Simulated assay, not measured.
Amino acid sequence: MITAGRDLYDDPRFFEGYRRLRDSGAGINDAIEIPAMSRMLPPVAGAAIVDLGCGAGALAHRLADAGAAHVLAVDSSQRMLALATPHPRVRYLHADLDELTLPAHSADLVVSSLALHYVADYPGLVRRVAHWLRPDGRFIFSIEHPICTAADPMTGWRKTGEGTVWPVDDYASEGPRTQSWIIEGVEKHHRRLATLIGGLLDAGLELTGIDEPVPGPAILQSHPHLAEHLRRPPLLLLGARRRKVDPVDGAE
């Protein structure tokens, strides 16, 4: 059975396993992804923000607490949204990211944390994001690193001799991949780094940042099991900006 991203977090087997993983603190979210995302984010005071794939709303809350005027937090999972706690400047919306439409020039910042590898139409979504952004608006997102999603299926570390290796195979063949992660048959989408960056440029955005975060010494001291991520980057973060002057019509 294949479980697509839009349905994954509503699968009760996956949902309970994922919640246990997050509650345990054993994953890479708190230790690696959140600090890296925080470093790349611009000041958000007074900003109108869209959070794509918000889950239970942790990032949306952090942005609202940092002074955002309002945050539209979007997720396709009813189960995840049911976990979200209210915030006076956060509005939750149940919607599929592949189908989401928003008004033009309505956002100062669009963010996404570890969700876009579930999106089937990445170029289409990026074009829509560019349409939503105001001049000088930013788009910042994290995904699983293409090195991690390349092999088909995504088998993870493989034993070889006395050690292990991470297979980087089928890298140029883009498309859906299956993985055994909490449950069997989890579907994600593999894209080359050139495709991910090229999609931003093709949508008329300017690249403003790129990061491949790995755990630092302090994190490794408290979470030694994360040392395997020094051998290959688990995540990719990209930042982009809509130009102040539209290259098509020159409008501010």
Rank of each mutant, 00 (worst) to 15 (best):
L97P: 11
Y18C: 10
A84S: 14
A95M: 10
I32H: 00
V74Q: 00
L72W: 11
G67F: 15
A48D: 07
Q78A: 15
A56D: 10
E33M: 11
R79M: 04
R79T: 06
C54K: 03
F15M: 12
S38L: 05
V74C: 08
L41N: 14
G53Y: 01
D75V: 14
S24T: 12
I32S: 00
R22K: 09
R39T: 11
N29M: 14
R19H: 08
D65H: 09
A31G: 05
G55Q: 09
L59W: 14
A47H: 01
A26H: 01
R79V: 01
A66R: 01
H105G: 00
G27L: 10
M40K: 09
A58Q: 08
S77C: 11
G53I: 00
E33P: 04
S38D: 15
P103H: 05
M40T: 02
H105V: 10
Y18M: 12
C54G: 08
A56E: 13
A45V: 12
H70E: 13
G57L: 03
L83I: 13
L109Q: 07
Y92W: 06
A45H: 02
F15G: 03
T85L: 13
D23Y: 03
V50P: 05
A69Y: 15
S106A: 05
Y92A: 10
E99G: 11
G17A: 06
D108S: 13
V110I: 15
P103E: 10
V71R: 01
M37N: 01
